[in-house]
Design a protein around this nucleic acid. Structure first.
Lengths: 208, 208, 208, 208
DNA sequence: TATGAATGAGCTTTCATTCAT
DNA sequence: GATGAATGAAAGCTCATTCAT
């Protein structure tokens, strides 16, 4: 029953199986959420779609709310993390760095368009999904620091306020595309316009 | 619609009473929504707050969903109409008109902060509240037309695209304030920053 | 549609209908409780037996626990109240009063034997049903007062302790009959033995 | 069952281990029951406390009900056996024997107060715990025989009836203490009062 | 045998909706 | 029309029990 050399594990190690179940459930949650919206999403349906029992769902998540939070969190965490990490910390001009970050952001949404549309359309607290907010917040701080570092090149601004304005503005331009005009995401002019928006906002004002 | 001599019947038993009941119900819905959030908002509670019976509610609205939609639509319609009508069609510079419109928008949200927070936090498909979207769309078109009319003063842009970018950007800066930093709504610099954002974006680029 | 003299109320007055629903539900609860025991008693089943919807049940009782408590309370309250009120406050000797009370108690259980058997067999906290306890407690106090009033005729005792002992002893002799030997309840010697028990306990001890 | 020279196998792999597991489980059940009450007692929790798996529990008991019954039975059996065996069959007067037995009973409950309270408060069919009833019944029979044996010293009674009355009365005085006034269990007067109760009941009536 | 992850029937409770009055 | 008691489908969650490993 055991051979000297084992090729397949006798049984899945504990953690691996758990992780797989968690993933299966979160995938199912994301799918059901997208298909039916928050109000119509039930734990029983998620479990059914995941191909497991409700009992199992509750073995891994203490409540419906916790599981939905985890599902959204995972999706957003994976993606949005990348966006704010793309601009190489030391490479290129401010505009070039911005361009890289914006492209990454747009690609993030474009690559998972259906999911994001579903979630943004159906899930309440649009801008509130916690992970999204956390990353947006982190983005603001990074931008604020960049503004401080490069303040010599820029119009005098309150870095905090400016970062807030810029991040919010860009966030919603892109999300509005996702929601209303997905084809715009493929328009190369979109990035340029956003750069113009930010660039114009930060550019030193010409003297009187 | 009003004339010095009244031609309408002394009492309008049917329609007037109906309209009043509808208003009462919609007000109650808005209030409950604002106070308790979507999840705790029930038709029975709305009727109770309105001082009528649930039965009456269903006389005027076919379902809970329909009634909440109507309530939100009316709220947004009333407010957003004002916002886009504030800039006097012919008065002042572009920047002045913009300033007036932005102030009106900010005041709109600030004047009913708790309600808008509740709605934006809890109501699914925020991005889809039809009246909101419709008016945002109308706003885009008005802005596009203004951009075309004043294109001589501005950097060359695709008016459609630029209007889209500007309206989306401003929308979310303000809504993010509503959701996350309400105190910013009272900061006079907010309007100025938004004007800087739009102004910088549209300003003719200095030559090479 | 209305005649000068009305013979049947146009509709049941509010309170009467409510009270009837409450009664119907409590009757059903008592029945289901008796038939299935506490653990197997569900609110849905109670409602079904009562011929109303679960929703109605929850209109009148805030929770399952509250409704079961009310059901048992009502039954016990009605009956046990009588027992401790039977002994005419001023009539007859102590033994005669006791005899009356004991007969009333026995008759109480005998008259509703099936219900009491069901409840005592199935419901947890046998001796804990709150109403039962409350009345037992009241009984103890009345007995204590009687013992104090008649202390001259009795062996010197701590009235509190003696009342406790007597009431508990009698309570369980009768309840054990209910549970295990219902036929004994019809044995006239039972009352005599209980009187002997109490009488012997309280009788002045013969001198050494 | 134990002899100086051991004849049983050095290790009893099968039965001994089984018996130990059963004991562990029953101990755990009793403990959980005492600590959490019936409603919060789950098979999984019992297994966890016992340090074995639920699967093992079901190897030894066909159902939760069966296991709890076994647990309570064992507990009562152990305790009550002692109580009824305490009065040395041939030693001392009737009153002395009674006093020994009563003290043993009181000590039994006092020694495990929390458990007995939990069980009496929460376990359905208290009156039906089989071991308790069986031993109470045995106690009645022993008392009946004693009454017959000593009938010369006593008031003429139906021994069966008298034993029933006495055992029930005493049972509930003690259990009521357990449930409502645990501190009374430590009052030395309690035993004396119970002896007075029984003694007065059985004492030959003076008189003409 | 022992394990404990997985199962899923079934419970309590809510609330949109109806309809007799 | 207006009322609000009554309805009952359906939700979230638990836990006795099973069975692959």
């Amino acid at each position: 029953m055991t051979s000297p050399i084992r090729h397949t594990p006798r049984k899945q190690p504990r953690q691996a199986r758990s992780q797989q179940m968690v993933d299966t459930l979160l995938d199912a949650a994301v799918r059901v959420l997208g298909e039916r919206g928050l109000e119509a999403t039930t734990t029983n349906e998620i479990a059914r779609v995941a191909g497991v029992s409700v009992g199992s769902l509750y073995q891994y998540f203490p409540s419906k709310e916790a599981m939905l939070a985890a599902a959204l969190d995972r999706k957003f965490t994976r993606g949005i993390e990348r966006v704010f990490e793309v601009p190489a910390p030391d490479g290129g001009s401010f505009a070039e760095q911005m361009r890289d970050g914006l492209r990454a952001a747009i690609d993030l949404y474009r690559g998972d368009l259906e999911f994001f549309r579903a979630v943004l359309l159906h899930v309440p607290r649009v801008g509130r999904v916690e992970a999204l907010r956390a990353h947006v917040h982190a983005g603001r701080e990074r931008l604020r620091d960049a503004l401080i570092a490069r303040s010599a090149e820029l119009r005098p601004v309150d870095p905090e306020l400016a970062a807030f304005v810029i991040v919010s503005a860009i966030e919603w331009v892109i999300l509005t595309c996702v929601l209303e005009q997905p084809e715009r995401l493929s328009d190369p002019r979109l990035v340029e316009e956003l750069i113009a928006l930010v660039g114009g906002y930060l550019a030193p004002r010409p003297g009187p």
